[in-house]
Design a binder for these strands. Structure first.
Lengths: 143, 143
DNA sequence: TTAGAACCTAAAGTTAGCTTTATGTCAAGA
DNA sequence: TCTTGACATAAAGCTAACTTTAGGTTCTAA
């Protein structure tokens, strides 16, 4: 299947200007063009966009994603580098999830804090509540 | 306890220039200064830094965090707004965790993919592997 | 009292990741 | 064939979140 830039934009929700920017950055090596110079996206480029999305979510920069995509072009000699990269990204994502989970606990504490304050109509009373009045599971996340 | 900007930077790992930038942005309303004009961070500012870190992790912009900190200054009338903000951030963080977990599955697929390719010394063989040769728990995350 | 480390400000600079603008070409239907 | 909407490029512009620079002031320990 082949797609115009507008179709790709509609299917993925990625802005046309962004797709052109990615192309300019070399994220679609050997993407085809029509005789008149118009970009022709194939399923290969669609797959690339999914990889870009995945790696972007892990916090990788466009520059580094581009590097990875070029390793893909090199074929088998870069297999180990590419494998190592995914293991690194996996570790990174685990760290990010852990950080978010910690943050989630803090947010739960804050939700309890403000719920209580709104109920009492007064923040100071919550501020001065003794520790044992804070729900046990939230105590450690007081901030 | 009181701290100089350098001490705060050491304790938190936040660059001095960043602390000054936050101050310039108004994130530390009524922070004290020494007679000579030198910033004096108290435990209140340290707590603010923890809140900033929490909200930044949820993806909030500095501008919006500043807004929240100003609501804090307003006292009880803004309690509901502040509570609602934390519930929003909680939802946001849940979404982020879900996205990261999905990404983690994809990364696990890729790790398996490249492990196999490295073992075989050949990517094409993995590419053409029938679906049932992909570990069951990874099949849905093929990309 | 003096050296130098640590602090201060204002303003300019940096980087990533796009988006916008200006101008022009291509392609498909009436 | 003509129109018009979708495409093209190059270059400039934008925003967030800092960081750097330049030049000066304050504080502390010898």
């Amino acid at each position: 299947m082949y797609y115009s830039i507008g179709e790709v934009s509609n299917k993925t929700g990625i802005a046309i200007s962004t797709l052109r920017y990615y192309d300019r950055e070399g994220m679609f090596p050997n993407m085809e063009r029509s005789h008149g110079g118009i970009r022709v996206f194939s399923d290969k480029e669609m797959a690339t966009l999914r990889v870009i999305d995945c790696l972007k979510t892990t916090g990788m920069s466009i520059k580094d994603i581009k590097q990875f995509l070029h390793w893909c072009q090199e074929g088998d000699p870069s297999l180990v580098k590419r494998r190592d990269l995914f293991y690194e990204r996996l570790e990174e994502v685990k760290k990010q999830i852990a950080a978010l989970q910690k943050t989630m606990h803090t947010l739960n504490y804050k939700c309890w804090y403000y719920d209580t304050a709104v109920t009492l109509g007064n923040e100071d009373m919550v501020k001065n509540l003794p520790l044992e009045k804070i729900p046990e599971e939230l105590r450690d996340y007081k901030i």
